[in-house]
Simulated assay, not measured.
Amino acid sequence: MARIDYYFATVSPYTYIAGTRPEEIAARHGAEIAYKPLDIMALFARTGGTPPKDRHPSRQEYRLQELRRQAAKNGMPINLHPAHWPTNPAPSSYAFIAAQKAGGGDLGALVAAFTRACWAEERNIADEGVIRECLAAAGFAPDLANAGMLEAAETYSRNLEEAVEAGVFGAPFYIVGDERFWGQDRLADLDAHLASLG
């Protein structure tokens, strides 16, 4: 069975636009997904990236145009200037890691719930109430919002180290064996690669 290492950020607009397509692709090819939430700003700092607010104005403007186009292409609503972005991604990421350990729900739906809350619903995913609602909507116990915080923090930190070592520099990022795919606009390439594996 092929394995997709899926590096993502709960505050990433491109992770939001990916929606549940990674899970659909994995299901189509009988692949498993190893979800690895990480701190995208720390990743930028470690791999030569620049946070959006520090980019040249032309890059900032293009980013917004591209987000609008990609969201429309995939039929997804998006607020290009969400009220709660940037926000602290750690609480939602910790909750995701706790849910991953606990099981019983849909992890793909949880990624979608967190990112949709930020980029389409004007909700603060650093807020415990919002986190609990997202967990419940994806079939997980809401109390996981406060479960295993120390272990989750360690996993979150380890995901960043693994990402840097694996050559990850953005989100979403998908790795299958030695093949790397950056961005939701590379999901068709990921799909084709998995198909080639038979």
Rank of each mutant, 00 (worst) to 15 (best):
D143P: 07
L64V: 00
G177W: 00
G30Q: 10
I25E: 08
A102L: 11
A153I: 05
L160H: 13
F169H: 08
G183T: 00
T47F: 13
L110P: 07
L197R: 12
W85Y: 15
I131G: 06
V168Q: 03
Y94Q: 04
Y156Q: 05
G183N: 02
T10E: 02
A90L: 08
N88Y: 03
N79W: 11
A98R: 00
A147F: 05
R180K: 13
M41F: 15
R68D: 14
L160G: 01
R116P: 03
L38R: 01
E161I: 01
L190H: 00
Q60V: 09
R68N: 12
D189Y: 12
L107W: 01
N124Y: 07
G129H: 08
N88I: 02
N74S: 11
M149P: 08
T87A: 14
E128R: 14
T87V: 02
G48H: 10
A188Q: 04
D127S: 09
G198N: 13
L190R: 00
F8V: 03
T155P: 04
D106P: 03
L38S: 03
C134I: 01
D127N: 13
T155D: 09
R21Y: 03
E66D: 15
G177N: 02
R21M: 05
N159W: 11
P142C: 01
T10V: 15
A9V: 03
C134A: 14
Q184D: 02
V11K: 01
A71E: 11
T87M: 04
T47Q: 10
A117N: 11
I4H: 09
S196W: 08
I78T: 05
Y14W: 15
M149W: 10
Q70N: 12
A112F: 13
A153Y: 03
E23W: 14
G167D: 05
A90K: 04
A45W: 08
F140W: 02
Y156S: 06
A113K: 05
Q70V: 07
T20D: 11
R46D: 06
L135T: 02
S157Y: 13
A163F: 02
E128N: 07
V176Q: 01
I97T: 04
G48R: 07
V11S: 02
A192C: 04
I175A: 02
R46G: 06
Q70Y: 12
M1N: 09
D189E: 08
A83R: 15
Q65C: 06
P77V: 07
S196I: 07
R3N: 10
P13R: 05
P91C: 10
T10N: 12
N124Q: 10
D143F: 03
F114L: 05
W182D: 05
V168G: 04
E122I: 06
L144G: 11
H29G: 01
T20E: 13
Q60E: 09
M149I: 12
I78H: 03
E165Q: 14
G104L: 06
K73W: 11
G49L: 11
A145H: 01
R180M: 11
I17F: 05
F169R: 09
A26Y: 06
L67C: 11
Q70R: 14
P89G: 02
T15D: 01
G108H: 01
A18Y: 06
A120I: 00
A166S: 13
P82I: 04
R59S: 10
